[in-house]
Design a protein around this nucleic acid. Structure first.
Lengths: 197, 197
DNA sequence: CACATTAATGCACACTGTGCAATATTTGCC
DNA sequence: GGCAAATATTGCACAGTGTGCATTAATGTG
């Protein structure tokens, strides 16, 4: 399963990161609206055309790409038979331990979201693929008929996770391992509210 | 409080509806991507410039404008002291009874969402203002410190409501009054999932 | 009817995003 | 190392989006 990351692959990742850095830096300096894709490309040292080879649009470059489950985690989930939410959170733990989280970038995103709240939907939207994957996993347990319910659950989970990312970004003392735990606690708070009928 | 809807006001509402009708009709006929704002304007019998006076963008014209709480409902909520979720759902009942829902338009939207799932985020996004209002109401109960939790709750509620709209649109036998009840039931299903730790 | 207010429109313009063809770089292979 | 295939980058043209501004038309008010 271990891959041989060729030069091209490393460059690709590197360039994607540089573009995101450029986009974040410019947005923080000049405001989100004042930044154009041409400026980002110039700052990142590439052509505008290449920018669009990496990201579909300006917003995607700013929030970057969310991680998604690897095959091993999906297989683990399907084989497991624990409580639904517990297993979903465990899958997320595997995901976050695997991927290398960059607290610096997360901090920049968080600061930008403070000054430009109109970006919040885009931030949560960046978790879309992950959310869809969570819904897919949930459906394997509760049945395809309940897909809308699975998506509701997945939306709550990814929202809580997004909130927790912002907390983690600003709390150096918080370890990446505890992100999922804190998100899980938030979900229990939600459960409490939902019981208030 | 009863207003005198002047000719201008009626025209404004009428034109907004015609634009939405045109946008939906064209998107269903030719596909969302193939429709331009110019085509919508032509179909609605207005100039492209006027189109942008009514809607910020093409997507907004398709999903239309979501309703929001009137002052009376907000005042009622602040005065009430029932359980949080029960009161929020009651506020939504008042909202839906007041506004006139158009099942025909909702059906068109639903059909379009079936053929163009990439519009789903935009559909749920159209409930953004309502969601923010729900969060505002919740904050008056649980305190400003818990705003992220209020937003998580509001997101779950508005998501469930959006799902229920789609059900209602396709079920002639379902009354508008029961929309909130069904959404409430969905939220209890979610609560059940959240308990599976 | 006269006048103020608001809406609709045309036009210019900056920006977004895509397709395509040309050029440059990397990779695998001998 | 050198060569051919695969892949990346780039420039260019172009359709579409969305806004600002000035002009014209419609509506509300007295």
């Amino acid at each position: 399963m271990a891959v041989k990351p060729t030069l091209r692959d490393r460059r690709r990742v590197q360039t994607a990161r540089e573009i995101q850095r450029a986009a974040l830096s410019l947005a923080l300096r000049h405001g989100h609206d004042a930044v154009t894709t041409e400026m980002i490309a110039a700052e990142a040292g590439i052509s505008q055309r290449t920018f669009f080879n990496y990201y579909l649009n300006k917003d995607a470059a700013i929030v970057g790409e969310a991680p998604c489950f690897d095959d091993g985690t999906v297989a683990w989930f399907r084989a497991s038979s624990g409580p639904l939410l517990a297993d979903l959170l465990q899958a997320l733990r595997r995901l976050l331990n695997g991927g290398e989280l960059d607290r610096g970038t997360s901090q920049l995103i968080d600061r930008l979201l403070d000054t430009a709240p109109e970006l919040l939907p885009i931030f949560y939207g960046s978790l879309r693929r992950l959310r869809d994957q969570i819904a897919d996993l949930a459906v394997t347990r509760i049945g395809a008929d309940a897909r809308p319910d699975a998506e509701l659950l997945a939306e709550a989970i990814s929202h809580a996770l997004g909130d927790t990312f912002r907390i983690w970004a600003n709390d150096e003392a918080m370890s990446a391992d505890s992100i999922v735990d804190v998100a899980g606690a938030k979900l229990q708070v939600l459960r409490g509210y939902l019981a208030q009928v």
